[in-house]
């Protein structure tokens, strides 16, 4: 557990010192979301109809773009192999790094999401559900994304590759995340959606650290 905390602390400190990273993710999210009204027109009805989907897709892309940060720098400067040589299990270290990634990308996105929802004229009944759905969904994005980030270590064209690997795996989260908000907006219960999202989160939490740790070991071998 102390290893988990040590890595978490260090990654948070790094993110803080290189502060621009988190800001960039949020900025990307806001800019992407802003593009949609230009694409589909400024009519309030249409925007309200697509708001939940747009916010989720933008959040997904923003989370994906920042994935490289989880392992790439540590891989390049040799930190990753020293981490692998430390007595702490790789799964714990991976969890620490993923949590740090979520705190620096997922959490700011959750805070920025309602702002964009307002700008897209989303019905107010969906706001709370949007926040809850993102709270359940974004950690799963970080957990799943970490596998992709570890698999592409040492590859050519890693950045493009990671999107090809990770985006298909993100589809269920997108479907249920956007579905929950839509259900809430239509006055239906979103509980079922949120329960499934919770199940996905628990499943990824239980399974992905092993896959990611395995992928990291492959990379430093």
């Amino acid at each position: 557990m102390s290893g988990f905390m040590a890595v978490l602390q260090r990654d948070l400190r790094l993110a803080l010192r290189q502060g621009a990273d988190s800001v960039m993710v949020v900025a990307f999210f806001i800019v992407t979301t802003t593009l949609f009204p230009f694409g589909v027109g400024p009519e309030a009805n249409i925007l309200a109809r697509i708001a939940s989907g747009v916010i989720w897709v933008s959040a997904l892309l923003a989370a994906m773009l920042s994935l490289e940060r989880i392992f790439q720098a540590d891989f390049e400067d040799g930190t990753l192999e020293l981490l692998a040589l430390s007595p702490v299990s790789m799964e714990m270290l991976v969890l620490g790094k993923v949590l740090a990634h979520w705190l620096t990308t997922g959490l700011p996105l959750i805070i920025a999401a309602p702002l964009m929802a307002v700008m897209l004229n989303m019905d107010q009944s969906g706001f709370v559900t949007l926040m809850i759905a993102m709270l359940l969904g974004t950690p799963a994005l970080s957990l799943i994304g970490a596998i992709g980030a570890a698999l592409i270590l040492g590859a050519r064209r890693g950045g493009v590759l990671v999107s090809l690997l990770v985006l298909p795996l993100y589809i269920p989260i997108l479907i249920f995340g956007a579905g929950a908000v839509e259900a809430a907006q239509l006055g239906m219960s979103a509980t079922e959606h949120l329960q499934i999202m919770g199940a996905i989160l628990l499943l990824t939490l239980a399974a992905t650290p092993f896959a990611t740790a395995h992928a990291v070991r492959l990379a430093i071998e």
Binding site: L151, G154, A155, L161, L165, A211, A215, L218
Partner: peptide
């Protein structure tokens, strides 16, 4: 794409198997 992205074919195959 993943399998072919590495200089070492064995590394690509292993990453691919995990994927």
């Amino acid at each position: 794409a993943l399998v072919n992205a590495f200089d070492d074919p064995e590394r690509g195959s292993k990453a691919g198997s995990a994927l």
